[in-house]
Design a binder for these strands. Structure first.
Lengths: 356, 356
DNA sequence: GGCGAGCAGGAGAGCGCTCTATCCCGGCGT
DNA sequence: ACGCCGGGATAGAGCGCTCTCCTGCTCGCC
């Protein structure tokens, strides 16, 4: 099992295996990579030599010639044009805040699960400052990863453009504000919001308000627009809107304001589950029953939706599937770099639970 | 800016930069890596050549000779000895479940933030089946990462042993059941549970129960043991115990049972915030006010604690700091492989909010 | 003025792998 | 019987970088 022929501390190489098996380096390489016909007897001998020497192929050496790393950068890209803040505090808060939302955990889940069967792995990166964005581009240009999966939180994020200009392979989560030549996956946010509006209306709600997501985020804009459109089309009156920040706390604050200004409301659509959860808390504290007095609908169908009391009726965003699709698109791109970019838009579904 | 001298599609190499700058490859390398004194004029020339050619050093080539990748594997290691389940369902559920707990997001945050200033990056891996564990070991043996940060959820996890036996650098989150020669960071769980017990007692609670964590996890055992010990030392009666699974739902189920069997209880210690949140929900549904009728204490001080209504009094586990410490220990190990392993145990702090 | 110390820069040998071009050998056609 | 074909194996040339030697200067010192 141990490498008897090697100077201590050095890993066995192809050469060692070849010598042990009495064949050439090339033959060992073929067996290890499972290509071309190799005499079964020799294959067996090589395999034995591999296990005797405890050989493991050196990834760097392989990458050097194949120009593949089997790694992809999974980058969470933050706000747009803020000045670089170098302080640990600034960064810490961004990275911490990212995972406070169950959304990113789901993205990671989807990416890992889709990469895994292909023997690939994600390298986690954050790109919230222009410095950090440069580092991401640099990382990719060095060939440290084969491509990037970019989850962009802001519409004006410059990263997609930077990556394209550098000629790097990448796929986006969410359509970029300005079309740049990159594939993306997205959700039909408007349709989702429409589902929520129609459900509220069908339930008999007439004094409906909405807690919008941040309006500098495409998802925030779209969900609001879709909701307003649907309401208008059904002849309902224009809903009061308060903008939140996709956090539970912002949902609480928004709900307080809504309640203060429109005490008679009977239905609320929050642009994500976290804000919907916050809204439920505030409603209860104000003595309103959910859904009897006020119906609440969230968005995403994240873990927060089922954790909420009452469990949230929500619009499902199939994050894991979308993340898996990103992987697929990226691998397509890597296999055929010249093929035109393709994007996939997923349709949301209404999940009815107890809150509406 | 573009590589005029290169055949299209090929990245510029050191050689190209050297030619452009009129110096040798070695000199360019020195400038790029900032080692040894190089004539300022030449440095400038090289730097200009770098930007003219758009050169980015090839990571694989560099790794091949330095034997460093500047990547570390961040592995979430799952249950112990279950049979390999190959199905996507099984895996999907593990990876999904991992991020359902805010805990892992915090670990990732701490790791990323501590790796970043060192120009290093984490590669995310899961090791919940024996097959997956082998893949992790294989990955490291190939030199794809310089070492591993292992977050182990089960006491009997075989991964730490596998990694040590393979002579790989690694640091654990949580002390392994059997000591293996690996550094680890851990929390003084018993002390934390004691804090909770004493706070409950000081508050005047006399009929105290506890929702334990899974007892095949060290943290679960320790927190329970610490809680029981503290209660006993203060002369309080032995608390009813129900085992949960660290999920909110398991907390709800446990609380239901506790309430059915001990309707008069006035204090609950849940072994993590998620279960405490579930307990609060159930208590309220049963008409108990928190903290007036029943005081509730959680553990971790995760985002769930402040998101809960009422905000949870909880025992803080400084996950981000602990994760950063793991990085530090790993880098120490890489710098001096022969130094004896050192471990760090953090002290928990009680965070008093509204629930107790 | 001569000589050794010290340092900037270059040449070149690898790091461990893949892959093309080549060689060898047995079987087949005529 | 002889050349031809083709599959199986090998030899060897890199991939792009780092790093150890080594050369050739300049400078300081006696």
């Amino acid at each position: 099992m141990t490498d008897a022929l090697r100077p201590a501390g050095t890993a066995p190489t192809l050469e060692d295996v070849a010598r042990t098996a009495g064949v050439s380096r090339a033959t060992v390489s073929r067996v290890v990579n499972g290509v071309r016909n190799v005499d079964p007897a020799i294959q067996e001998a090589v395999r034995r030599a591999v296990s005797v020497t405890g050989y493991a192929p050196n990834r760097a050496a392989r990458s050097l010639v194949t120009r593949r790393t089997d790694a992809v950068a999974l980058v969470v890209s933050g706000a747009g044009a803020e000045p670089d803040d170098e302080g640990a505090a600034g960064r810490g808060s961004f990275t911490a805040q990212v995972f406070a939302d169950p959304f990113f955990g789901r993205v990671v889940t989807g990416v890992v699960d889709s990469l895994r069967p292909r023997g690939m792995h994600p390298v986690l990166m954050f790109a919230e400052t222009s410095r950090a964005r440069e580092e991401v581009v640099e990382y990719l240009r060095q060939g440290s990863a084969d491509g990037a999966l970019i989850v962009s939180t802001h519409a004006e994020d410059p990263l997609p453009r930077l990556v394209t200009e550098a000629g790097l392979a990448a796929v986006l989560y969410a359509r970029p504000a300005r079309p740049v030549g990159i594939s993306y996956v997205d959700l039909a946010h408007r349709d989702g919001a429409r589902l929520a509006a129609e459900h509220l209306l069908a339930r008999g709600c007439r004094r409906i308000a909405t807690i919008a997501g941040p309006l500098d985020v495409a998802a925030g804009q779209e969900r609001l627009a879709g909701f307003q459109e649907a309401l208008a089309q059904q002849g309902a009156s224009e809903p009061p809107v308060v903008e939140g920040g996709f956090t539970q706390e912002s949902g609480e604050i928004a709900m307080e304001r809504l309640l203060a200004e429109h005490p008679g409301l009977d239905g609320v659509f929050a642009a994500n589950d976290l804000m919907a959860t916050g809204a439920c808390h505030v409603l209860r504290e104000h003595g309103r029953r959910v859904p009897e007095d006020v119906a609440v609908i969230g968005f995403d169908d994240s873990s927060a939706a089922s954790a909420c009391r009452p469990p949230l009726t929500t619009v499902r965003q199939p994050v894991e599937d979308m993340a898996a699709e990103m992987t697929g698109l990226l691998l397509d791109r890597l296999a055929a770099p010249d093929r035109p970019v393709t994007s996939v838009v997923f349709e949301p579904v209404l999940i009815v639970r107890d809150s509406a």
